Amino acid sequence: TTIHVGDLTLKYDNPKKAYEIAKKLAKKYNLTVTIKNGKITVT
């Protein structure tokens, strides 16, 4: 599972963990989490 945050690309083997991290990042920086085709993007 890949999380895209701006220019950063973070890879995680565990999709659930990746989603949790994405949610935390989104909350911290007041951003939105988008999931599309298995890719998690924080914008």
Results as ranks from 00 to 15, higher is better:
residue 24 K to P: 00
residue 4 H to F: 11
residue 16 K to Y: 12
residue 39 K to R: 13
residue 36 K to I: 14
residue 8 L to F: 10
residue 14 N to R: 03
residue 21 I to M: 13
residue 2 T to L: 10
residue 26 A to T: 02
residue 41 T to I: 15
residue 21 I to F: 15
residue 42 V to A: 04
residue 42 V to Q: 01
residue 32 T to S: 10
residue 32 T to D: 04
residue 37 N to G: 11
residue 12 Y to L: 05
residue 31 L to I: 04
residue 8 L to I: 11
residue 42 V to D: 00
residue 13 D to Q: 07
residue 15 P to W: 15
residue 19 Y to Q: 05
residue 2 T to I: 12
residue 29 Y to T: 00
residue 39 K to W: 12
residue 28 K to I: 09
residue 4 H to E: 09
residue 31 L to H: 02
residue 16 K to T: 11
residue 6 G to D: 04
residue 10 L to D: 02
residue 39 K to E: 15
residue 23 K to N: 09
residue 21 I to W: 11
residue 12 Y to K: 01
residue 6 G to N: 04
residue 22 A to W: 09
residue 5 V to S: 04
residue 22 A to V: 06
residue 34 T to Y: 11
residue 36 K to R: 13
residue 41 T to Y: 15
residue 8 L to A: 03
residue 25 L to D: 00
residue 7 D to H: 14
residue 25 L to C: 03
residue 5 V to D: 02
residue 42 V to I: 14
residue 17 K to Y: 12
residue 4 H to W: 09
residue 9 T to F: 10
residue 17 K to H: 09
residue 20 E to A: 14
residue 22 A to G: 02
residue 4 H to A: 08
residue 7 D to N: 15
residue 41 T to V: 12
residue 42 V to T: 02
residue 6 G to W: 12
residue 21 I to V: 12
residue 24 K to Q: 11
residue 31 L to N: 00
residue 30 N to Q: 08
residue 36 K to E: 14
residue 37 N to E: 11
residue 34 T to L: 11
residue 43 T to A: 13
residue 40 I to D: 01
residue 18 A to C: 09
residue 30 N to G: 14
residue 21 I to C: 10
residue 38 G to I: 03
residue 31 L to M: 11
residue 20 E to Y: 14
residue 11 K to Y: 15
residue 18 A to T: 02
residue 25 L to E: 00
residue 30 N to W: 05
residue 6 G to K: 03
residue 16 K to W: 14
residue 40 I to R: 01
residue 8 L to E: 03
residue 20 E to P: 01
residue 5 V to F: 15
residue 26 A to M: 05
residue 26 A to W: 05
residue 10 L to W: 06
residue 1 T to D: 05
residue 5 V to P: 02
residue 28 K to H: 07
residue 27 K to Y: 08
residue 11 K to L: 14
residue 27 K to N: 06
residue 36 K to S: 13
residue 24 K to V: 09
residue 38 G to R: 06
residue 23 K to H: 11
residue 26 A to E: 02
residue 43 T to M: 13
residue 5 V to T: 02
residue 26 A to I: 03
residue 21 I to A: 13
residue 22 A to F: 08
residue 27 K to L: 11
residue 27 K to C: 05
residue 42 V to N: 01
residue 35 I to C: 10
residue 35 I to G: 02
residue 36 K to Y: 11
residue 12 Y to A: 06
residue 32 T to H: 10
residue 8 L to D: 03
residue 31 L to A: 05
residue 6 G to Y: 08
residue 34 T to I: 14
residue 27 K to H: 08
residue 32 T to E: 07
residue 37 N to H: 10
residue 14 N to G: 05
residue 3 I to S: 02
residue 26 A to Q: 04
residue 33 V to N: 00
residue 29 Y to R: 01
residue 43 T to E: 11
residue 26 A to G: 04
residue 2 T to G: 03
residue 39 K to Q: 15
residue 3 I to L: 13
residue 7 D to V: 10
residue 18 A to P: 01
residue 27 K to D: 07
residue 14 N to W: 08
residue 23 K to R: 13
residue 16 K to V: 11
residue 15 P to E: 10
residue 16 K to N: 08
residue 13 D to M: 08
residue 24 K to M: 15
residue 40 I to H: 01
residue 9 T to M: 12
residue 16 K to C: 11
residue 43 T to V: 11
residue 21 I to P: 00
residue 25 L to N: 00
residue 28 K to V: 07
residue 18 A to L: 05
residue 3 I to T: 02
residue 38 G to K: 05
residue 19 Y to E: 06
residue 22 A to C: 07
residue 5 V to Q: 02
residue 34 T to S: 10
residue 1 T to Q: 06
residue 20 E to D: 09
residue 30 N to K: 09
residue 33 V to R: 00
residue 31 L to W: 06
residue 2 T to W: 07
residue 23 K to E: 08
residue 12 Y to P: 03
residue 23 K to C: 11
residue 18 A to H: 01
residue 9 T to K: 10
residue 13 D to V: 06
residue 20 E to K: 13
residue 43 T to Y: 13
residue 43 T to Q: 11
residue 18 A to F: 05
residue 4 H to V: 14
residue 15 P to A: 12
residue 28 K to Y: 10
residue 4 H to Q: 15
residue 41 T to M: 14
residue 39 K to P: 02
residue 36 K to H: 12
residue 43 T to H: 13
residue 32 T to N: 08
residue 42 V to H: 01
residue 36 K to D: 12
residue 37 N to W: 11
residue 17 K to I: 14
residue 28 K to T: 06
residue 14 N to D: 15
residue 43 T to R: 12
residue 30 N to V: 03
residue 17 K to E: 11
residue 39 K to M: 14
residue 18 A to D: 00
residue 2 T to V: 11
residue 16 K to F: 11
residue 11 K to H: 15
residue 15 P to S: 09
residue 11 K to T: 15
residue 27 K to I: 10
residue 5 V to R: 03
residue 3 I to G: 02
residue 12 Y to S: 04
residue 42 V to C: 05
residue 38 G to N: 11
residue 17 K to N: 05
residue 6 G to T: 04
residue 30 N to T: 04
residue 10 L to G: 03
residue 40 I to Q: 01
residue 5 V to E: 02
residue 34 T to C: 09
residue 7 D to G: 14
residue 32 T to R: 09
residue 25 L to I: 14
residue 9 T to C: 14
residue 10 L to A: 03
residue 33 V to T: 01
residue 24 K to D: 05
residue 34 T to A: 08
residue 14 N to E: 05
residue 43 T to K: 10
residue 9 T to G: 04
residue 24 K to T: 08
residue 16 K to M: 11
residue 40 I to E: 01
residue 3 I to Q: 02
residue 32 T to W: 06
residue 9 T to Q: 12
residue 33 V to D: 00
residue 19 Y to S: 04
residue 29 Y to V: 01
residue 1 T to A: 12
residue 22 A to Q: 01
residue 19 Y to W: 15
residue 37 N to Y: 10
residue 13 D to G: 07
residue 9 T to W: 09
residue 29 Y to K: 02
residue 6 G to P: 03
residue 10 L to Q: 03
residue 26 A to H: 02
residue 29 Y to I: 01
residue 3 I to D: 02
residue 39 K to S: 14
residue 36 K to G: 11
residue 12 Y to N: 02
residue 40 I to A: 01
residue 15 P to Y: 15
residue 24 K to A: 13
residue 17 K to R: 11
residue 10 L to T: 03
residue 17 K to V: 13
residue 40 I to Y: 05
residue 34 T to D: 06
residue 4 H to Y: 12
residue 33 V to A: 03
residue 36 K to F: 11
residue 41 T to E: 09
residue 40 I to L: 08
residue 24 K to S: 09
residue 34 T to W: 06
residue 32 T to L: 10
residue 25 L to F: 06
residue 27 K to A: 12
residue 28 K to N: 04
residue 37 N to D: 14
residue 37 N to C: 09
residue 13 D to N: 09
residue 40 I to S: 01
residue 29 Y to E: 00
residue 2 T to F: 08
residue 41 T to H: 14
residue 4 H to L: 12
residue 14 N to Q: 05
residue 18 A to W: 06
residue 12 Y to H: 03
residue 39 K to T: 15
residue 24 K to Y: 15
residue 5 V to G: 02
residue 14 N to P: 03
residue 12 Y to F: 15
residue 30 N to D: 06
residue 33 V to K: 00
residue 31 L to Q: 01
residue 4 H to G: 04
residue 13 D to C: 15
residue 2 T to M: 09
residue 38 G to W: 06
residue 30 N to L: 05
residue 24 K to F: 15
residue 40 I to K: 00
residue 12 Y to R: 01
residue 8 L to G: 02
residue 3 I to P: 02
residue 34 T to N: 08
residue 41 T to P: 00
residue 22 A to H: 00
residue 28 K to C: 10
residue 32 T to I: 14
residue 5 V to K: 03
residue 1 T to E: 03
residue 3 I to W: 01
residue 2 T to D: 05
residue 40 I to M: 05
residue 11 K to G: 06
residue 31 L to R: 01
residue 35 I to R: 06
residue 28 K to E: 06
residue 17 K to C: 09
residue 16 K to R: 12
residue 1 T to N: 08
residue 36 K to C: 13
residue 40 I to N: 01
residue 41 T to D: 05
residue 41 T to Q: 08
residue 42 V to G: 01
residue 33 V to G: 00
residue 11 K to W: 15
residue 7 D to A: 14
residue 27 K to M: 10
residue 26 A to V: 03
residue 21 I to D: 03
residue 5 V to L: 14
residue 33 V to M: 11
residue 27 K to F: 09
residue 33 V to H: 00
residue 36 K to M: 13
residue 14 N to Y: 06
residue 34 T to P: 00
residue 43 T to G: 13
residue 37 N to T: 07
residue 33 V to W: 04
residue 17 K to G: 03
residue 19 Y to G: 02
residue 10 L to N: 03
residue 30 N to M: 07
residue 29 Y to A: 01
residue 32 T to F: 09
residue 6 G to A: 05
residue 20 E to N: 10
residue 36 K to L: 14
residue 37 N to L: 10
residue 18 A to S: 02
residue 28 K to D: 03
residue 21 I to E: 06
residue 36 K to A: 13
residue 35 I to W: 08
residue 34 T to H: 11
residue 13 D to F: 08
residue 42 V to M: 15
residue 17 K to T: 12
residue 11 K to P: 06
residue 27 K to R: 12
residue 26 A to P: 00
residue 16 K to D: 10
residue 16 K to H: 11
residue 43 T to I: 11
residue 5 V to W: 15
residue 38 G to F: 07
residue 3 I to Y: 01
residue 1 T to K: 05
residue 1 T to Y: 14
residue 13 D to L: 09
residue 31 L to Y: 03
residue 8 L to T: 04
residue 20 E to C: 09
residue 19 Y to L: 15
residue 35 I to A: 04
residue 8 L to K: 07
residue 20 E to V: 09
residue 31 L to K: 01
residue 24 K to H: 10
residue 35 I to Y: 08
residue 15 P to H: 09
residue 12 Y to Q: 02
residue 6 G to S: 04
residue 25 L to K: 01
residue 43 T to N: 07
residue 1 T to W: 14
residue 17 K to F: 11
residue 29 Y to H: 04
residue 23 K to M: 15
residue 39 K to D: 12
residue 22 A to K: 00
residue 15 P to Q: 10
residue 27 K to W: 08
residue 11 K to N: 12
residue 15 P to M: 13
residue 43 T to F: 12
residue 42 V to F: 10
residue 4 H to I: 14
residue 12 Y to M: 05
residue 32 T to K: 10
residue 38 G to E: 04
residue 17 K to L: 14
residue 3 I to A: 02
residue 38 G to H: 07
residue 29 Y to F: 11
residue 14 N to K: 04
residue 33 V to I: 14
residue 25 L to P: 00
residue 35 I to V: 12
residue 14 N to A: 04
residue 19 Y to I: 11
residue 5 V to H: 05
residue 10 L to P: 03
residue 33 V to Q: 00
residue 39 K to H: 15
